[in-house]
Design a protein around this nucleic acid. Structure first.
Length: 418
DNA sequence: TCTGGGGTCCTAGGACCC
DNA sequence: TCTGGGGTCCTAGGACCC
């Protein structure tokens, strides 16, 4: 059996842990630059606030319903996530952290367990130790565990947060209840396509001939088809190192000056290089892109990107920054209002396995320098920067509703008044 | 005024090899 | 009239996830 545990309205729940006044209130969390809604409490969902809606379009609704608004606080969410995952990892030796708020556990050898009671135990433990509410779905396959989780959440009153699918009858019932577009792995495109042939729920999907699914939805759809039918097909994915690492950001305002763009790209290059070192990898290729504001139809549009080969496999901020700026110089065009830039590092290898080159010699002092900078920045909160970066804090993300980093900064720790 | 930021996997087709 | 039979690697684009 597999369990899929996910945190209810995760970002909103994190805010509530440290601010109990938010309980039973509509809460939303916004994306970077306070752009779009990316998390909603149940009360906010009930008001009809959709995922991804731009915040400025919701001003009236927010005001009239006293919706509590937060800028995203990834320091807080990331730390709360690792606490939750740590606790849940004690419930099975085999696990896959699937996203910031979801984890699969493989329950092999748990045949004698009362799964519902086990799920309840997870919920109680996580809530007691972190304050985060979770839901638990347990079923013979990963795809069915996803379905079970959805049911656990939807019928919380009856399920108490845990739902177990363990018989063919329950599989059929659960699949008939699941709309095709809500199936894990069926996105908008496939949902439309399937509805056109009168496949409206997950059960009808499992009744399609395997050959048809393979042909129309590739091997990916075929695996899902089996897994959903109750034949274990999708296995736990091992925790792998990432194959791409990116930092891409919209600016708080539009930029047309080359020097400003250089500064942005340098800053992103430094961020992304530090992420790369953090997973002990090096990269061979960097992709740099810039584009104008696609929402401004009144302005001329331009977007471009370029792949830059690095002289050797590296994770040095100095080398990666230089390459990124070289890329920028090739794609930057004067006369446009830019809104976004990004850098994606590709062709990653573990830094212990990097290929040396014959013609370029890496400056080994970089490694020592980077290590020192990383250590300083860990302790001193990103105070060490390179000359090309945003030394004067000229660029700030719009974060007008940012909560404190309660769990990772001593000087932002919560104060309790008696 | 204001519109996010990450990731993965698969396939088809082109360019190339012998 | 008729024009081989294997391969590999790379890339762009499409689908999906949170």
């Amino acid at each position: 059996m597999f369990a899929l545990i996910d945190c209810n309205n995760f970002y909103a729940s994190c805010e509530r842990v440290f601010n109990p006044e938010l309980n039973n209130q509509p809460v939303v969390v916004l994306s970077n630059n306070d752009g779009c809604v990316i998390a909603r409490s149940n009360e906010a969902k009930a008001l009809g606030i959709p995922m991804g809606q731009p915040a400025f379009q919701l001003e009236k609704l927010i005001r009239e319903n006293n919706v509590k608004v937060f800028s995203s606080n990834y320091a807080l969410y990331g730390d709360m996530s690792s606490r939750v995952m740590n606790i849940l990892s004690q419930f099975s030796p085999e696990l896959e952290v699937y996203s910031i708020d979801e984890i699969f556990l493989k329950l092999e050898g748990f045949d004698l367990y009362d799964f519902h009671a086990y799920g309840t135990q997870m919920i109680t433990t996580v809530y007691k130790n972190t304050g985060i509410p979770i839901s638990v779905g347990i079923a013979p396959t990963k795809a069915l565990a996803k379905v079970a989780n959805k049911i656990a959440k939807k019928f919380k009153d009856r399920t108490n947060g845990t739902y177990v699918i363990n018989t063919p009858e329950k599989i059929e019932k659960a699949l008939r209840w699941t709309e095709i577009g809500d199936v894990w792995g069926i996105g908008r495109r496939y949902a439309t396509k399937l509805k056109n042939i009168k496949v409206n729920n997950a059960w009808q999907f499992t009744q399609l001939p395997a050959q048809y699914v393979l042909k129309e939805m590739t091997i990916v759809g075929h695996r899902l088809h089996r897994d959903l039918s109750g034949v274990p097909t999708l296995e736990l994915d091992e925790i792998a190192i990432k194959k791409n690492i990116a930092v891409t950001r919209s600016f708080d305002k539009m930029l047309d000056d080359y020097e400003d763009m250089k500064e942005r790209v340098s800053t992103y290059a430094a961020k992304v290089s530090s992420k790369l070192r953090n997973q002990n990898s090096c990269c061979k290729v960097a992709y740099i892109f810039i584009h104008t504001n696609g929402h401004r139809e009144d302005l001329p549009q331009y977007s471009n990107g370029i792949t830059v080969q690095l002289p050797y496999s590296t994770n040095s901020t100095i080398v990666i920054s230089k390459a990124a700026l070289r890329g920028l110089s090739r794609i930057f065009k004067k006369g446009y209002q830019y809104k976004k830039a990004g850098i994606i590092l590709m062709d990653l290898t573990p830094d212990t396995e990097k290929q040396l080159t014959l013609f370029y010699k890496e400056d080994h002092r970089h490694q020592i320098l980077m290590k020192t900078i990383d250590r300083l920045n860990l302790n001193c909160f990103d105070k060490v920067k390179f000359g090309g970066q945003d030394l004067n804090h000229t660029w700030k993300m719009r974060q007008e509703h940012l909560s404190k980093r309660y769990s990772t900064r001593l000087n932002e720790i919560i104060t309790v008044k008696c």
